[in-house]
C-alpha cells in the first residue's frame, strides 16, 4: 500500500524504491548539516548575507546531484541488462537519447538567445551544450557499465 505522495517520484521496483529513499534521506541529512554550517559561518562572519540566493541555488544543485550520482554509481538503473547483446543495444539507445537531448538543449538555448531572454555568446552556447551533454553521456555510460557488471555478478 502506497502511503505517501513521494511514491509518485519513485521507481516501481521494490529494491530501487528502497535505495532511492535511502539516497533522498542521506541528501536530507546533508542538507541539515549544510544549513548548520551556513548558520555558524553567518553568525561569526556574516559572509553569506549578501549572497543568500547563490547559497540557495548551490544547495538545490548539490542535493540534486548527490541523489543523481548515488543512483548512477549504485548500478541499478539498467537492472535488466545482463547479456552482451543487451548491453550493446542499451549503449546504442543511450547514445541516441543523449544526441536527441543535445539537439533539444541547443534548440532551447538558441531560442533563449535569439529572443533576448538570456544574453550569452555563441561560443558560450556551444561550450554549454557540449559540456552538459558530455557530462550526461559520461554519467549514463558509467551507470550502464556499473549496472552491467552488477547484473553479471548476480546472474
Amino acid at each position: 500500500m502506497k502511503e505517501s505522495w513521494v511514491t509518485m517520484f519513485l521507481p516501481n521496483d521494490e529494491y530501487k524504491e528502497r535505495r532511492m529513499l535511502y539516497f533522498i534521506a542521506e541528501a536530507f541529512v546533508l542538507f541539515i548539516g549544510f544549513l548548520g554550517v551556513v548558520f555558524l559561518l553567518n553568525r561569526f562572519s556574516g559572509i553569506f548575507n549578501t549572497e543568500s540566493s547563490y547559497i540557495l541555488l548551490s544547495v538545490i544543485a548539490i542535493l540534486s546531484l548527490y541523489v543523481w550520482i548515488r543512483y548512477i554509481v549504485s548500478g541499478m538503473e539498467y537492472a535488466n541488462v545482463v547479456e552482451k547483446s543487451e548491453y550493446k543495444m542499451e549503449l546504442r539507445k543511450l547514445i541516441g537519447s543523449t544526441s536527441k537531448f543535445a539537439v533539444l538543449f541547443a534548440g532551447v538555448a538558441i531560442a533563449l538567445k535569439v529572443t533576448g531572454v538570456v544574453v550569452y555568446s555563441w561560443v558560450d552556447l556551444l561550450a554549454m551544450t557540449l559540456l552538459t551533454n558530455g557530462l550526461l553521456l559520461v554519467a549514463q555510460f558509467i551507470s550502464l557499465q556499473r549496472s552491467f557488471r552488477k547484473n553479471r555478478e548476480l546472474s
Binding site: D13, E14, Y15, M76, A79, V82, K150, N151, E153, S155
Partner: peptide
C-alpha cells in the same frame, strides 16, 4: 512478479531482504 531481474539476483544472493 513485476520487479527487475537485478532484484531477483540480489534476493537469491542474500544481498537484499524483500518485503
Amino acid at each position: 512478479i513485476g520487479v527487475t531481474r537485478q532484484t531477483i539476483g540480489l534476493i537469491e544472493s542474500n544481498k537484499y531482504n524483500p518485503s
